[in-house]
Simulated scan of single mutants.
Amino acid sequence: MASLSCLVLLSLIFSNFAHSLAGYYTSKPLAYNVPKKPMNVIDSCWRTKSDWAINRKALADCVVGYGKATLGGKYGAIYVVTSPYDDPVNPKPGTLRYGVIQSIPLWIIFARDMVIKLKNELIVNSFKTIDGRGAKVEIAYGPCITIQGVTNVIIHGISIHDCKPGMAGRVRSSSTHVGMRGGSDGDAINVFASSNIWIDHCYLARAKDGLIDVIHASTSVTISNNYFTQHDKVMLLGHNDKFIADKVMKVTLVFNHFGEGLIERMPRVRIGYAHVANNKYDEWKMYAIGGSANPTIFSEGNYFVAPDNRSSKQVTKREATNWQNWKWQSSKDVFINGAYFVPSGYGSSAPLYTRVQSFTVAPGYMVPVLTSNAGPLRCLVGKPC
């Protein structure tokens, strides 16, 4: 009887120890008894409400993480895009460009499905929301979005793909200013020297340069619920290894789905800080999370499925030789098909969120469900989305 009690006690101790491990490793996707379609904390804030179409601005209250204070056009009027036409210098009322350059806050929506082929980069002014809910909206086959030197921008529910470099020439950036531009690189979204930015539920694929760049001391950014696919250098956080102003950069990357055909930079971080939480990684060709110039990275509750290539199983990559003291840590991550994370540094790398920025990060095995609706949603008026 005593030996049986000892066995039970040892079993309990082993069970508790196993569940306290920072990550879970397996060769196959995990099959847990997860409730059907629980929503993540951002989606549950608004998607269950059938009045979303007449109460669109409530979305601005749902962001979490470093971009929590982002207002977008919450305190402005509704502006309706009725035409996909574009004129970079003298945009017409009813076009997307006419809305985003205005100096007043605006919540921009779309009258119908449309594909917008921009003639040059779309320069977005402060306090704007681009809200694609209720329509299928694509910005594609031309230059794409630039967020430069502004604050409080929300981009939600649109597809941005097949982006081309912008040409040198005149582009209007406000209702009162047209400036000469040197040409854009071909990013899907370029965030340059800006703050309080939220990019949510977008589809991003096949840009000439990066899908999302956050550079030149941009900060207070949340990138959430997006679907990334078919691209090489996916996401860059930080301008270059010597741009020390990027030390202020703080980015939350949460509930995103990194799909098929991606190679690297999910993200690559330079100098600043990134909280990478509850994202699903289907595969990568080179690596998933990389960095240089001593950034701090906290990988928490992610779901990593390594490629079959034995030389590409590692999640992490440092572009340096003296990285041992960099703070890169993993907690509650799930590793499948031989994926593994190489930690480094000492002390905590957890985000120092304020009370309003903070959110509960789910264990990694929940991620396939929490990210199952990443990308634009097909929302019907009068029904929960």
Rank of each mutant, 00 (worst) to 15 (best):
S3Y: 12
L4G: 09
S5N: 11
L7R: 15
V8L: 15
L9H: 11
L10R: 11
H19V: 11
L21I: 11
A22E: 15
Y25I: 12
Y25M: 12
K28M: 08
Y32Q: 10
Y32A: 13
K36N: 11
K37F: 10
V41C: 08
I42N: 02
R47E: 11
S50G: 10
A58T: 10
C62A: 02
Y75L: 05
Y75F: 07
I78T: 15
Y79H: 06
P84N: 04
P91K: 04
T95Y: 12
V100K: 13
V100Y: 12
I104H: 01
R112Y: 07
D113P: 06
D113G: 04
I130R: 10
R133L: 06
V137P: 04
I139D: 04
Y141C: 04
Q148N: 15
V153Q: 12
C163T: 05
K164L: 07
G166Q: 09
G166P: 10
V171Y: 00
R172W: 05
G179H: 15
G179Q: 14
G182H: 11
N190T: 13
V191C: 02
A193L: 04
S194P: 11
S195R: 14
A205M: 02
A207P: 06
D209R: 07
G210S: 13
A217D: 13
S220G: 05
V221G: 00
I223N: 07
I223C: 06
F228N: 01
F228C: 02
T229C: 08
T229K: 12
H231R: 07
D232F: 10
M235V: 13
L237P: 06
G238Q: 05
H239F: 15
T252W: 00
L253W: 15
E260V: 07
E260G: 11
G261V: 02
E264G: 05
E264T: 14
E264F: 08
M266I: 07
G272F: 01
Y273C: 04
A274K: 01
H275R: 05
N278Y: 02
N279P: 09
D282V: 03
E283S: 11
E283Q: 14
K285N: 05
K285F: 03
I289Y: 09
I297R: 00
F298D: 03
V305K: 11
V305Q: 12
P307M: 01
D308I: 10
S312P: 06
S312K: 15
K313M: 00
Q314C: 14
R318K: 14
R318C: 11
T321N: 12
W323L: 02
W326P: 01
K327P: 04
Q329S: 13
Q329D: 07
S330H: 03
D333W: 02
V334E: 02
F335C: 13
S348A: 03
S348V: 02
A350K: 14
F359K: 05
V361T: 14
M366R: 06
M366P: 03
V369M: 06
T371F: 09
N373C: 09
A374H: 00
G382M: 08
K383H: 13
